[in-house]
């Protein structure tokens, strides 16, 4: 029997958000407790993937003045601003803890299930889907920003309408995809943390990325969105969770991690 908790958090700093996620991963590994957490960011924050070079942030001019934090998960950089972020920590005895691709797909399918009714159902002019193709780029060729990368399992949206290829008037091509949800994972002693971002509205610090809400005209509050998405994830993963606060002992652990690790230049600029 896996114990579970659901945390719907207030907006917080990047160092705190990353520290809480790491604390929940350790808690899943040590005490076997699964946690689903939904959260936001108190200021526009650039998060780097664990293996990214700090100096590469200079490639992205629009976010140069933003606070930067390094994640413990892989993938590309994310500008967290007008988005909803989730994290899911599962202990080693959960079946999906070992099937990392299935976990990725399951959570992303839950997002699609929650968002589809907001798009207008089957009659919508928009399609929301999970990519089934892997990236064709090598790791060193990938764009700096996660939302400009395309990996298997990412959630993208596109218009149902085809468009005329500007290079060839006779050719009709499918409209382009916009990525709106990407996730990344970290394993620790058999437990797994998966967290990811739903790009809801365009940020001034990443104006090249289209948000789902304003692009397709969804009118939903953050609370409505959090509720719909958490319910869909719990349903999809057959988890039964009660809403809870972060326990005081974990809050203390997270505070130490935030101060000593995620807020430190030694961590953020470690490579």
């Amino acid at each position: 029997m896996v114990a579970h908790r659901l945390i719907i958090d207030r907006p917080a700093s990047g160092a705190w958000n990353m520290a809480v996620d790491e604390t929940l991963l350790i808690d899943a590994a040590v005490r076997g407790i699964a946690t689903l957490r939904l959260y936001q960011w108190s200021e526009p924050t650039l998060s780097l993937g664990y293996f990214q070079q700090y100096g590469d942030r200079n490639q992205h001019l629009a976010s140069r003045e933003c606070v930067c934090v390094r994640r413990q998960t892989g993938g590309g950089a994310i500008l967290h601003d007008r988005e909803l972020t989730y994290s899911l920590a599962l202990p080693a005895n959960h079946p999906l803890a070992r099937q990392t691709e299935s976990l990725y797909a399951s959570v992303h399918d839950a997002f699609i299930a929650a968002l589809k009714p907001m798009l207008g159902g089957e009659d919508s002019r928009w399609i929301l889907l999970r990519r089934d193709q892997e990236s064709t780029m090598s790791a060193h060729e990938e764009p700096f920003l996660c939302f400009q990368r395309r990996a298997r399992g990412d959630v993208v949206f596109r218009s149902r309408e085809t468009s005329i290829d500007p290079g060839d008037n006779a050719a009709r091509t499918a409209s382009p995809d916009w990525k709106v949800l990407g996730s990344a994972q970290r394993r620790h002693q058999g437990a797994i943390l998966q967290h990811g971002s739903l790009l809801w509205n365009t940020s001034l610090a990443a104006p090249e990325l289209a948000g789902l809400s304003e692009s397709v005209g969804i009118d939903a509050s953050t609370d409505e969105l959090s509720t719909a998405i958490s319910e869909a994830i719990l349903r999809k993963l057959s988890l039964h969770m009660s809403q809870a606060e972060l326990p005081p002992d974990l809050e203390s652990n997270a505070r130490q991690l935030a101060n000593n690790k995620y807020a430190s230049a030694a961590w953020t600029k470690r490579r």
Binding site: Y50, F51, Q72, T73, G74, G75, A184, Q185, R187
Partner: peptide
């Protein structure tokens, strides 16, 4: 030692 596979970092 740490390795990254697609998006998962493992020890």
């Amino acid at each position: 030692c740490e390795v990254e596979s697609v998006k998962a970092v493992s020890d």
